[in-house]
Design a binder for these strands. Structure first.
Lengths: 114, 114, 114, 114
DNA sequence: GTGGTCTAGACCACC
DNA sequence: GTGGTCTAGACCACG
């Protein structure tokens, strides 16, 4: 499959935020390793059926935070500057969010605390 | 404090969606029981430092879905969930899927069973 | 008028960069004081005959760097640059609030004191 | 004029409800066909001399019920999922309401049953 | 330029 | 006092 980030256009969460999280998640879990090239802006836009500007915005934000590196005319790559601590923190955050989401979705199904 | 729903105005997720989830979560975990009155629209707005309309929108949405009941001039209350027996199986299946997904995603984050 | 930032659409320098510098300059020279509201995105776009998205991009960048503050549904304002010593007490208070919120959230997730 | 929905700001019925009915009616009677774009939120607000938020509320409600479909950044369109039965039912209901309203208004004008 | 979200504050209907 | 409706106008996300 290569890299199918999970995006839900119906969800109220902004697309750019969903995509940003998905990419960080892929990096945190190792699906994207240091030095790996990300899909091109246009290709990812086509794959996710969203606008290229939205993808570009995410890449710009990730570059601003030092997560990826853009080489003009070449592509976008996962940057080296990633401490284990940061990844552990990310994982913790993700886990917490997962828990909340799990419980919330379960409650949508009509279950009470159990 | 009574009921401090967790809202983060800096987060890109819409406030109304955060609040809706927080209330569903409170109900799911039993912090809000059936028949309990929710904070008044205006009071909750003051507590969370958000606009009353945003709170009202959430209450309206929750009422639309049968989660709460509003009595004009009185207040908003947690409704007794009416589960159609016919749907029990569906819910079970969905719950199992949720569990699997939760555990899968958690394991991707490097956690072992817990 | 009031605040005619100098923008030259013929100049090769990106408009968003020209505008950002112009706003920083206005703040540095006191034409815009702390707490002052900046023109609305759309109004400034009309005044300068540039696209609203360009103005929005500049405001977002200035907010990211702590120069301005946008209040949802209200407007964009020049931020008070906080000088460390004077605000130490405030920071302490905020830190305590952060702690409380963190612990509350953790407990919501079912964790006991740790 | 294209699409002048009938709205009466003096009438005690909430504007958003009047507008919702008017749009459903237009669809039921074929004035709005499947796939047709509805007026933009802001344009309709101007035409009806009501607030854009009121229009947006109606569009959101209609989308929630699957009557229309909104494409982010594009517009709002009549959705396909419409059975003849539903339309017939709508027409019947509308017709009855029309009759009642007509008779009521006529009686207000001093006419007796005829 | 589209719809979406949010704010502030008004007036209304209900109890 | 409660929630409901509406306005005017702000920024945001997206195409």
């Amino acid at each position: 499959m290569s890299l199918s980030f999970n995006i839900n256009t119906a969800h109220p969460t902004p697309l750019y935020h969903q995509l940003e999280r998905a990419i960080r998640f892929a990096i945190a879990t190792g699906k994207l390793a240091i030095g790996d090239q990300l899909p091109t802006v246009r290709q990812l836009a086509v794959d996710l059926r969203i606008n290229a500007n939205t993808v570009a915005k995410v890449y710009a934000e990730l570059e601003r935070e030092g997560v990826v590196e853009t080489r003009r005319g070449v592509g976008t790559f996962v940057k080296a500057r990633h401490f284990e601590a940061a990844r552990a923190k990310d994982r913790d955050r993700e886990l917490r969010e997962l828990e909340v989401r799990f419980l919330t979705e379960a409650s949508h199904l009509g279950f009470s605390a159990a």
